[in-house]
Every structure is written in structure tokens, then in C-alpha cells.
Design a binder for these strands. Sequence first.
DNA 1: CCTCGTTTCTACAACGTTGTAGGCAACGTT
DNA 2: AACGTTGCCTACAACGTTGTAGAAACGAGG
Lengths: 335, 335
Amino acid sequence: MRHRLKDVAERAGVSVKTVSNVVNGYVHVRPDTRARVEEAIAELNYRPNLSARHLRKGRTGVIALAVPELDIPYFAELARYVVTAAADYGWTVLIDQTGGRREQERVVASGITDHLIDGLIFSPLALTAEDLAGLDGTPMVLLGERVDHGPADRVVIDNVTAAREITDHLIKLGHRRIAAIGSQRTDEGASARLRLAGYAEALRAAGLPYDETLVAPAPAWHRADGAAAMRGLLTAGVRPDAVFCFNDTLALGALRALHEAGLRVPEDVAVVGFDDIEDGRFSIPTLSTVAPDKERIAQLAVELLAHRLDGDRAAPAKELSAPYRLEIRESTQAP
Amino acid sequence: MRHRLKDVAERAGVSVKTVSNVVNGYVHVRPDTRARVEEAIAELNYRPNLSARHLRKGRTGVIALAVPELDIPYFAELARYVVTAAADYGWTVLIDQTGGRREQERVVASGITDHLIDGLIFSPLALTAEDLAGLDGTPMVLLGERVDHGPADRVVIDNVTAAREITDHLIKLGHRRIAAIGSQRTDEGASARLRLAGYAEALRAAGLPYDETLVAPAPAWHRADGAAAMRGLLTAGVRPDAVFCFNDTLALGALRALHEAGLRVPEDVAVVGFDDIEDGRFSIPTLSTVAPDKERIAQLAVELLAHRLDGDRAAPAKELSAPYRLEIRESTQAP
DNA sequence: CCTCGTTTCTACAACGTTGTAGGCAACGTT
DNA sequence: AACGTTGCCTACAACGTTGTAGAAACGAGG
């Protein structure tokens, strides 16, 4: 049922290599020969065997995208854009879930997918720079700043400035007691650290005090963590007039907790998030947020990978920055 | 940098095949030989070349999952479970986005991934049975009932009964004017048709009239479509006391539209959805819904594929049914 | 007519792996 | 002592493709 070059060759009365040449668009093939071969290909519904092709060529045409979890909206949206961007290069994307577990991430990074993939786009949560050091493996592009000064190409957004700007938005509206939800231990949350830094910068610039009690940690950044952190603040008697959540799912959880506590958003408390996931455009109220250009992030990552594959694999690591913008919606207004 | 069996063989002082035997766990290898080989493997950090292995074996160890869009929460959650279930069989999952476009779906079904994949789990939106007929291609498992009586294995849930039960839940609470959002043209929305049938059945069983004006179509099942449909109903002067949305994203959109219209959920209007996506557990109000067992769906699909791969490829198509349950949350209460 | 270059095509080897067939010891059985 | 059996290992071929080298056919230029 499945045919090979040989079958096509026999049917068209040419050599195997000529069929290969036709399939690969080699120029020096007489038009009538080409036509005969193409006819045979169509009749047999021939499709190249990629395993064989790639064994021969050393390239597979498949790249992997490794993310912590697919059902985290941010990663789902990102995955979508990566798949689309990769299609422009004729690549298929294989998606790996690491669960954010360091062990699994290390396995992925060291090439669990073996010779199956040409390159890897990697959004690590728990991986350290040491894990990456001394990897002979496949070319890799990292997303986000989880791994500092790693040996690999990287796409980031300016988290500090973005966090400062969204905090500034709250300050400009007149908020004074601005809580932050999502801080993490330094060694595990690089994004958290940078966003917290931006938050602190904005407060300082406005002459507002940095109040430890207003900063709530969140072990992970899921809705449940946001809800728990917000409840924790309220239970502790902390009563902010605005909350900066370090991502949108945290913010959606916080909205939920505020609602349960009988507080209105934005009338009693303003809430902002980060990531601009689709939920936030339909939540009640809709969510003001920092909107990183996910499409651009995906494009840049794929581009970096393409350069790395075609060019010098030993070239120094590049870091590209993707743009973002503020999306102001219903969840913020003056107190 | 990358080593082959040959390199390991030379280092261990054995034949290539013996190394292969060790790698594949063949029994008849003397312990000391095995140890020597394993040492060499470790020293060289040898990893098998999957392209070569699969060229030889005819299997790739990769299956594809084709879904309309990754950033639709239902599919993202499903994808997560499929990846996990496939891992139990040692399979890697390659995720394809069809965008729900028939052309793209046809391409995927006919094997765009060529010889790269052993099988396909496919959640089609626009594909017809004719598109699938006469496909020589890879073994396939369909999710959902989009394609009737297709030639392929299938995993479904009992949409009619589930829809009847959730509608019944609304009726039991005392609702009488129950709207339905998400109907589609018969030829494109099999799930829509079945859920509508269940809705109608429940009304009939309760002696309630089936009122055309209460049924709103939705071209796609995104939040925006749900919001638009709900707004449409309200603008037309229709004032239901409950709404059955054919999936959760529609329901989240409807919540949004009701909120904008100044109607309270569940006090003024009760709302139910279908799918049990995570958003619905944190929305305001939290969403009553039909919760299909997505983990089970994924397991069954992978299992069917495994059987098809190992067993008789010409065996008649099987259809398995996955369980579901009702999740009653805040969005429904007596009027 | 010869030479040379170009076009068109082919034969062969190789990519890294595993199935098959078989060889050589070592052992137990007759 | 001869024989079969078993355990352990190896050589070889093959999976389907493409790069390399080169053959055959042809035309142009001398």
C-alpha cells in the first residue's frame, strides 16, 4: 500500500535517483521525463519516507517545543504561535510537557527526543544554568529569563520595565496601597524576581513605601494560587486598594477571592495581571494586563533556531527582546 | 559529537549487533559483556538514532494529535492528557493544529506527516466521512462524533444523554424558559446537533414547549460567539430564565454578555456549560457544567490506537464511550 | 571531424539501525 | 565418544533515501 521511490521509478521507466531528483525539484530533468515521473507519483500516491530521508540528510524537519503545561493558557497560546511560525520554515513541531519538574526538564534538554528533532524551543521553569552547561545536544532557544546567562539563544521581554509601567498605571489612577501577588524564592522564579523589581521601582519613583506585608508569594502561578494568596492577604487584615498579579491566571484567581470576600473590582480594589490570555478579555470584570507580543516571541524563537541550524553552531548566544503593550480594561479605575 | 553503535562497539570490543542487543534488552548477553557495553554507552553518552531505528523497524514511536486549535482550553486540556497517556506506551506526541479548516484537516488525515507517525488521534471539526473514506493512510482514532459512521475507531461521550441531564437539572430547579446557545448547521456541527437533541428531549419529557426563538446559533464555540449569541437573544427581547450553552467557552461569553446587560447570574438567569474547562471553576460565578472525563477519553484513544497498531488493521472500527458527570456550581440556582 | 562543455540520467555507496542466519563454545545426555 | 541443546556472539543484508561520480547523448566551437 505504501510505495517507494523504486516503485515509482519502475512505473515511470527511470532510475530511482531520477525520481528523487524530480521529488526534490532538481533542475536538470527533461520536461517529458519529469511529467512521466510526476504522473507515476500521482498514480501511486507516493509520499517520501521521512525517516529514510532524514537518516540520509541528518535533518528531521521536526523541532520540539517544551513547556511546563499545555493547559496553562499562556503556554497554549504560545504553542499555537510557535506551530504557526515553524510552519513557515517547513518544520513540524513536537510538543513536550515537562510539568515544570526539573528532572523532566533536564531529560528534555539533554535530548530525550534523541535524533528525532533538529532543535528545541524551551520554556523552562525549574532548570538551572548548570543543567544546561556542557550540553552537546541539539540547538536550543530559551524562552524567558529563567536561566541566567545560559549558553543558549534566548527570547525575553523586558519584565522589569513592563512591571514598572503597569504598576505606574495603578499609581497614576491614584492607588496608594498596591499589593503584589506572585513573588517566589529567588532561585526558582526569575520572572517573579524581575516583575517584583519593576513593581518596587515604580513605587520608589512615586515616593511610595515598599511594604513587605503587601507582597504575597505564590508557589505556582495558577488560578488557585492567586485565589489563595488573595484570601491570605485579606485574612491577614491587609486591605490594598489595588493588586498587581504577576500573571493573568493569578489575577483571575484573585478576582475570584475578592468576589467571595464581597469586594467589588474595580470599585473597591483595582486588579492588573500579566500575559494577556484570552480569559482576561471575557472575565468579569475584564482584566487590565501587560500584553507581551506572543506571536512575535514565537517568530523570534523560530528565527533564532533557524539561524543556529543553518549557521555557526558555536557562535555566541544571542538574546532578543520582544515588544509588549499595556491593555487597560475594566479591572482598573481610580479609587 | 554524536556517537553510533559502531563507536560503542569499538570501545567495548564487541560487535555492533551485540551493542544493539544490549540497548534493546536482549536476554542472551553475558553479564560482564553487558556491563562493558553499558559502560561504553555511558562514557560516550550514546543515544540511538531514531530515524535509523524506525527506518529499519517501520515504526517511529511518534503519534500525532490533530486538534482545531491549541488555545481552546478544552483541546489544551485534552492534549495534556493525550501526551500523558501516550507516554505510558513510550510514544511521543506530535501536535498538529488544523484550525478547523477542512482543507488542512484533509491534509493531516491523508498523512501530511508522511511516514513520520505511526498513528493519529484526530479531533476534526469540518471533515466529512467522504474525506476519510478510502484513506490508505495511518491508523486513526477519531474524537467526538463529527464524522458519522467513518471507517475509523472512535471515542465519544453520550452527548444526547449528557445534554438531557444538564437541561433536566435546570428544569428541576424550576426554570421554564431555557435558552440554548451553540446550535449549528447540521452538516458542520454533529456535537451541536446531539446536544440540541438532548436539550429538546428534556423539554419534551417535562412537558415544556420547544421554542425556536430560544435557540441561538453560534458559528464557532469561542467566548466571543457566546457573548454575541447572548446579546442577540437579549436584543431580540428574549428573556430566558436559564441558558444551556453547548460548551464552556460559549457559557463564559454568555456570562459576560449577561453581566453587561445588568442581569445577575444565577439570580436572574441560570447558566450551564459543557466541557468543564478550568476557567469555569474560577469564573464569577463558577460554572455548572457537564464534565466529560477527559483523562479517560485520552486513555481510550491511545488504547484504541495501540490495539490497531499491534492487531488487525482491517478489523471493524470500534467505538468506545467515555463517562461524564454533572458539576453543579454557582451559576445555577432556583429562579 | 574532433574536442569540449552541458544536459540528462544512472549506478553505487552510505546514513545507523535491527532481523536473520549462522558459528563457536560449553554443557548435558545418550 | 558422539550427539544435540543452549548460550553467546558475529557477519551480513536490508529498511528508503540522497550525494557523488561518472556515463551517455547532444550541441557548439574549432
